[in-house]
Design a protein around this nucleic acid. Structure first.
Length: 150
DNA sequence: GCCAACGTTGGC
DNA sequence: GCCAACGTTGGC
């Protein structure tokens, strides 16, 4: 059982979209490190901080959980998708995704607020130059944020 | 829109 | 295998 922070652009899938749909496939990851986390490390039941990125108010918007093991991201096979990958085949898919299930919407814990807590200073998402869309969260960080957003 | 930081590509 | 060029991310 581990904890994660997963970035989503709310224009694409917001916490409200997740709440409405209950479960979404985490399509569109095109970074090997993030893919490997989904493929090799994430397990059903893992806790997820649902993070809004590339938007007016970046920050944690709610809680979710990993709801499936990994399987091929269908957008890699779709020539009409912006995530299409000509080098991916059905036999040898390149990109994987997991399903993510809604747990709870919270107030927005903004990036700027997160930076104010020494308890969160080591979070990977706060490190300079960090762009990875899926990052592990320590149990202590998870507990701290859960208490903050209780 | 800017741009720092980082990842990927491809020529050699 | 190196590394310059290029593309992407994502906060501001």
């Amino acid at each position: 059982m581990q904890y994660w922070l997963m970035k989503s652009e709310p224009d694409d899938v917001s916490i409200d979209d997740l709440a409405a749909r209950n479960t979404v496939g985490w399509y569109g990851v095109r970074n090997y490190q993030a893919r490997n986390f989904m493929r090799d490390t994430q397990q059903v039941g893992d806790g997820v901080l649902f993070y809004h990125s590339s938007c007016e108010q970046p920050g944690v918007a709610g809680f979710a959980r990993v709801a499936s093991s990994s399987y091929p991201d269908p957008t890699q096979f779709d020539p009409n998708s912006k995530y299409f990958d000509a080098k991916a085949t059905l036999e040898k898919p390149r990109w994987m995704q997991v399903d993510v299930e809604y747990v709870r919407k919270t107030r927005l814990l903004s990036l700027s607020e997160m930076r104010q807590y020494p308890e969160l200073a080591e979070m990977l998402v706060l490190q300079k130059g960090s762009r990875l869309s899926i990052t592990p969260v320590s149990p202590a960080e998870w507990r701290f944020i859960q208490d903050l957003l209780a």
